[in-house]
């Protein structure tokens, strides 16, 4: 059984005619100890999908269809107090923009101890601080820094603190939303290395959200590519990356949008046009307008997520043959 099994999930912002279906009938699974990458461009619904799991959506968003099974329990109809039992202890989140998410007037140690004190009542303050110090050491920060404040830390160090905090209550699943986006390349490499080693030490499963395919290629076991609220392609990292394997024209074009220093030096291709406006209704494939290989059918029939191989799925009428 998978640790997390999301089925046919739809999330809508606003309601009625002005509503926007940001996530539209999406499946997502994360196995025990698995690193799953969730990728796509701004507005594709990746963050909305991830935040729907522990229901951290804003008030004007609502889950309209689907189930979110975590260890066999459906989270989608749980009350706020029931969800609070799950948050931090089972599922924790490393938020986007974490660099500014720390409290400037609380010490680092106290901030890491806070979720422990709240979610594990009965823990003494001293015991919580001791654990906070162990966590700091685990993310590569000296325990002696636990009485420092966040402004004394660089971006990379703050991100390490955010990771330590996410691990505070020994969760089974960590959702990391663009955890390295604002960091330098060298710091990115440091943090990714850290996440990988922590996942082994703490036996973590991870949902890693990023707009950067190249980061996911190097980190994840499986990757799910989203486009305009739908899954375009999902598969093992080997299935999805590499132009030979990728089965969706969107993924293929996206991969060509990155310079690849291991190939010939040439100008990146990019993708013409812009993603569709989700407040309007669609016929056919949502990528058809920007797709260079689309045929008539693509503008009329919406493609199903079709099986390509054991774990590989693609929502394209021209599956496999679209080079």
């Amino acid at each position: 059984m998978n640790l997390l099994e999301v089925k046919n999930l739809s999330v809508q912002y606003g309601s009625g005619q002005g509503g926007v279906l940001a996530v539209d009938g999406v499946d997502l699974s994360v196995g025990v100890g698995e690193f799953v990458g969730l990728a796509g461009e701004s507005g594709c619904g990746k963050t909305t999908l991830a935040m729907a799991i522990p229901n951290l959506l804003p008030k004007y968003a609502s889950i309209t269809t689907g189930t979110i099974e975590f260890e066999g329990q459906d989270l989608s109809n749980k009350s706020e107090s029931e969800l609070n039992e799950v948050r931090w202890r089972d599922i924790s989140v490393i938020f986007q923009g974490a660099l500014n998410a720390l409290n400037p007037v609380a010490t680092i140690g106290n901030q890491i101890a806070e979720p422990i004190l709240i979610h594990e009542p009965g823990t003494s303050h001293d015991a919580a601080i001791t654990r906070a110090k162990e966590l700091l050491e685990a993310v590569g920060i000296s325990a002696s820094r636990s009485s420092s404040y966040s402004h004394e830390f660089s971006g990379g160090m703050r991100q390490r603190v955010m990771i330590a905090m996410a691990l505070a209550c020994r969760p089974k699943l960590v959702i990391a939303d663009e955890p390295i986006t604002a960091l330098d390349v060298m710091t990115q490499a440091q943090i990714l290395e850290l996440l990988r080693s922590l996942s082994e030490t703490f036996n973590l499963s991870m949902l890693l959200i990023s707009h950067d395919l190249s980061v996911l290629a190097e980190t994840c076991d499986r990757v799910q590519i989203m486009y305009a609220g739908k899954v375009a392609e999902v598969g093992t990292a080997d299935d999805v990356f590499g132009e030979q394997n990728s089965a969706h024209p969107y993924t293929q074009r996206l991969l060509k949008s990155y310079p690849n220093i291991h190939q010939e030096r040439k100008f990146i291709d990019g993708i013409p046009g812009y993603p569709p406006d989700l407040s309007k209704s669609h016929a056919g494939c949502r990528f058809a307008e920007r797709c260079t290989v689309s045929v008539e059918k693509c503008f009329t029939d919406e493609p199903e997520l079709a099986v390509i191989s054991e774990l590989h799925r693609s929502a394209c009428h021209l599956v496999g043959g679209s080079k």
Partner: peptide, 18 residues
């Protein structure tokens, strides 16, 4: 710096210098 440039490919043989 060159050794840690992320590459949109799986299984590129490389020695990262972090």
């Amino acid at each position: 710096l060159v050794s840690v440039i992320p590459v949109p490919e799986k299984n590129i043989a490389r020695n990262r210098i972090i």
